[in-house]
Design a protein around this nucleic acid. Structure first.
Lengths: 215, 215
DNA sequence: ACCTGAACACCGTTCAAGT
DNA sequence: ACCTGAACACCGTTCAAGT
């Protein structure tokens, strides 16, 4: 059932993931699903858990040292592996964002990540702060507010377009022109968020943490 | 109308923000709203824009130097000001997360933030990467995956609870025990995300950027 | 234990009609 | 230009009933 839900979201988007449609996809009447779950939220919780399990499985295959300074590249590899799983389900970040309780598999994932940092010499307190600093990045995605290569100029409000765009937002326009080089329409997760940008932000945080732990 | 929508979400939650309810709140029939907007998404886009304008207004009052190394504290102050606005509307992050096009006011906000970094000596390329690294943090909120002080142990799955919790996730349990000190039930935005944690992550990124720009 | 059909309360949205 | 009423297609969910 959860597998079917994920397949449905993959093929036709999250908004197509409805109890009625999921039921017909399973060759069953809509209300039969309520024998296995109490409410739709349970399905979404389950979907998140399956995805997190997929990540845990992928991450479990990684066998690298974690002690001392090695924690950093180990964490990096783990998070980028998680990201690969998430990239296969571009709708997943939005579902993760709506969950209020953390799924068992997600808890497990973060426990291991904290463990890895402990191996690297982190105090519990620093590991705690590190988790907050990473936020959703620990699972391989970010919530972007800003899409410089994307739809910005095209969809801008008339008010902004009537006044000269370049005068209203000169810095963004300058950046757009300058950034023309590395626009990559592939491999985005949510907004503009290609692999290089993700890794830049991730490394910024990991480097900062390493500096703190080795001081 | 947008003001009414925000008030409604503030008082009764985003899920209560429905076209029909918004209409009755305005003392009008539900379908009258469709003379001002084409679809509900337009309302949400508008709500986001009003919030971003509120942030722009608040930020405009800040008058601090931005040249050279001063960029960092100026950016910090701006982002924490944005956060104060967001904290008044705890449902807002989720709405921001669902928008696919960036509102004019949000564009403006980011343009000024890029401008500030330019004052600080950033290349367009570094400013671009900085925006990605910050992600939604630039507007004062984060997408947290992890709630150590919150509902985690209480809501854990039977499977995890039956096996000894401390054996399943020893690192999180250790962290929870250790972290008992700084649990703050107030001032959370979304998941567990208090002011100190937000500032820690923010400074980690800003410090990393400063190091890059001053190398 | 598992599934169904009919029904309820609620959505967003269309459309033809009113002033 | 602005508002309305009735209606449509679609939700999630309840409930009593079937096997």
């Amino acid at each position: 059932m959860l597998r079917a839900a994920i397949a449905l979201a993959d093929e036709r988007g999250v908004e197509a993931l409805t109890m009625r449609r999921l039921a017909t996809e399973l060759g069953v009447e809509a209300m039969s699903l309520y024998h296995y779950v109490a409410k739709k939220d349970d399905v979404l919780d389950g979907v998140v858990d399956v995805l997190a399990s997929e990540i845990n499985d992928a991450v479990a295959e990684i066998d690298v040292p974690t002690a001392g300074a090695a924690w950093q590249s180990a964490a990096r590899q783990r998070i980028l592996t998680a990201r690969q799983v998430m990239l296969r389900h571009p709708w997943a970040p939005r579902v993760f964002a709506t969950r209020t309780v953390m799924s068992p598999a997600t808890i497990l994932y973060h426990d291991r990540l904290v463990g890895l940092m402990r191996d690297g010499g982190f105090s519990y307190d620093l590991a705690h702060r590190a988790m907050h600093a990473l936020g959703s990045r620990s699972l391989g995605f970010t919530q972007e507010m800003f899409d410089p290569g994307g739809s910005m100029p095209a969809e801008a409000d008339p008010e902004v377009l009537l006044g000269d765009f370049a005068t209203m937002v000169p810095n963004l326009v300058g950046m757009l022109v300058d950034a023309q080089a590395h626009v990559d329409p592939e491999s985005r997760l949510g907004w503009c968020d290609d692999q290089a940008e993700f890794e830049f932000g991730l490394d910024l945080i990991l480097d900062g943490l390493e500096r703190l732990v080795s001081r």
